[in-house]
Design a protein around this nucleic acid. Structure first.
Lengths: 203, 203
DNA sequence: ATAAAATGTAAGTAACCGCTAACATACGTA
DNA sequence: TACGTATGTTAGCGGTTACTTACATTTTAT
């Protein structure tokens, strides 16, 4: 089954690139993780870069958004945007490791990886910008730079997601997360000063 | 001058690891950037890992915090924490590229790099935790887990810094940043709907 | 001025990288 | 059965990596 093998490779590629980054994930390991000969990887994808592009195309918000566009075309504007944002946050948290790697490697090394990331993001932006442009031309939205608008929209939720991630993850190893949360709450709601004492009194 | 050469290598190491990541920064390039033979790099640092440790030890908030401890020991608690937070944010923005790489590579590949990052963070945490513990034992602070407290403290500002960074950087290439800002402001303050129209009215 | 220490140059190691060639084997389809 | 397609195996290519050896040269200290 050709398709199934291709999927196994894509899946393994996602997993390894997510955890080790593009440079850290070797084609040999990807093949092994897929239960496949290394050569088979290159029979399905002409290069590591193409494999990476395919991974981004399959497992990110891009294909999800493309599928959504026809559905939301008939929705009220606000509801449509709520749908998009909701799904985006869903995908971001499903692929959080990938997101972090992207965030780190974007605009970095090597050049070809930069290009892949940027062209991926441009695609995302343009899909949403096209939706905005349609509404602007129908006179339903005021005139504004649709691409900048799309960037702003994704940026908002991307930023929100990352702040969320940062607050969550302190990887305090086996420590129970509830304990951490309750400790944090105690510390910041109740303060670290002895009850009753004024802040400026502490040495 | 032995010390000067060492500094040049450390500086080049910081620069390249900040922009290309640990795996992406090669010793050859670091040497070239330092204006030094590759061999000289290995005469000063026994391995790439040791060089990396030295870079972290020199250019992060860790040495700054260590120097601060004696100074803030005599300050009121609140003022001391303000000093620490202020300086931390200063260093974070001075080393923003390094911070982003750390954020991305931490807990990833290869294993030895993980260890370096974690041991670095543990050092940071423990320096501040010791300060907290001192105040707790003097009865000036209520009893709380000092290490968790230190993690929470750093985490707060680290998170704040990252949110800030995310809002700033959309790398909209040559576009003037002011234009982006004003577009964003327009979009979100004024909204994307035609003035006067109700949100739910837009198709 | 001279010895010691620091650096440069050149060549090369072993390991690993992405990627390919050559050939054998399994498997579904006709 | 016979054939085409997908895969496995093995071996290896050319390149790069972190790191080394051997030796010449420069710089520094005394």
């Amino acid at each position: 089954m050709a398709i199934k093998t291709r999927d196994k490779i894509l899946n393994a590629g996602l997993k390894l690139i997510s955890t080790r980054g593009y440079l850290g994930a070797t084609t040999k390991e990807i093949a092994r993780a897929a239960g496949v000969a290394e050569l088979t990887v290159f029979r399905h994808f002409e290069s590591k870069e193409k494999l990476f592009e395919a991974v981004l195309t399959r497992y990110t918000f891009l294909p999800v958004l493309k599928e959504m566009i026809p559905e939301i075309a008939g929705m009220p504007y606000e509801k449509a945007l709520r749908e998009i944002a909701g799904r985006q946050l869903q995908v971001l948290s499903l692929r959080r490791d990938m997101v972090k790697i992207m965030h780190a490697e974007m605009g970095r090394y090597p050049e070809k990886v930069q290009e892949i990331y940027h062209s991926f993001i441009d695609q995302l932006i343009k899909v949403l910008a096209a939706y905005f442009d349609g509404l602007i031309k129908k006179g339903l939205l005021r005139e504004f730079d649709a691409e900048l608008g799309a960037r702003a929209f994704f940026g908002m939720f991307f930023s929100y997601f990352n702040a969320q991630e940062f607050l969550m993850r302190k990887k305090h190893r086996t420590t129970d997360q509830d304990k951490v949360v309750s400790e944090f709450v105690k510390i910041f709601v109740q303060g670290t000063l002895i009850p009753g004492a004024e802040e400026t009194e502490a040495v």
